[in-house]
């Protein structure tokens, strides 16, 4: 075979291979959602984070605005400190409410940000003051049963 034809085929092969890797990274994987845009970090302490994991999405009005970077336990206040990185395009007021929500009944958990009405915006490294813990199903069922039991006791009396 001609040397140049062979070179052409090998070149095409390598280009196609690199193209396939790029497709995997950008279209199949989450490299496309790693925005090159800068982000700033916010913190929030939660009484209970349920099943929240690092890299879980942070959503506001259903739109992904950032990701959970890190989750740590604070041994002094006995609550979980969640660090999240938020896209700089999105600014949130000081009195934004952060709660841990679940998408669907069995879906993954994420942090929902509900913007408040404050004039002052949160800056990088700030702490979100108003937080709402995750709903733990067992606790809810336990509370429900407890209420039921006390109700029936009242009924008997």
């Amino acid at each position: 075979m001609q040397r140049t034809t062979m070179d052409l085929w090998v070149g095409l092969f390598v280009v196609a291979g690199i193209g396939a890797l790029l497709v995997l990274a950008l279209k199949v994987g989450n490299m496309g959602t790693y925005s090159a845009a800068q982000s700033y970090t916010l913190m929030g302490s939660f009484e209970n984070i349920g099943g929240l994991k690092p890299r879980a999405p942070v959503k506001s009005a259903g739109v992904v605005v950032g990701r959970v970077l890190d989750i740590q336990f604070n041994p002094e206040t006995f609550d979980a400190v969640v660090t999240m990185s938020i896209d700089t395009r999105y600014q949130f007021p000081k009195d934004t409410f952060a709660s841990i929500l679940t998408s669907g009944l069995l879906g993954e958990q994420y942090i929902g940000l509900a913007a408040g009405g404050d004039e002052v915006m949160l800056k990088g490294g700030d702490k979100i003051m108003k937080t709402n813990s995750a709903i733990v199903l067992e606790e809810m069922i336990g509370r429900f049963l407890f209420n039921k039991a006390s109700e029936s006791k009242d009924g008997n009396n």
């Binding site: 092969f13 196609a16 291979g17 690199i18 396939a20 890797l21 497709v23 995997l24 279209k27 199949v28």
Partner: peptide
């Protein structure tokens, strides 16, 4: 050299 390219093509064509 060929193996990673072939596997990447396999995966992306499979998807």
């Amino acid at each position: 050299i060929s193996m990673p390219f072939l596997a990447a093509m396999f995966s992306s064509v499979g998807v």
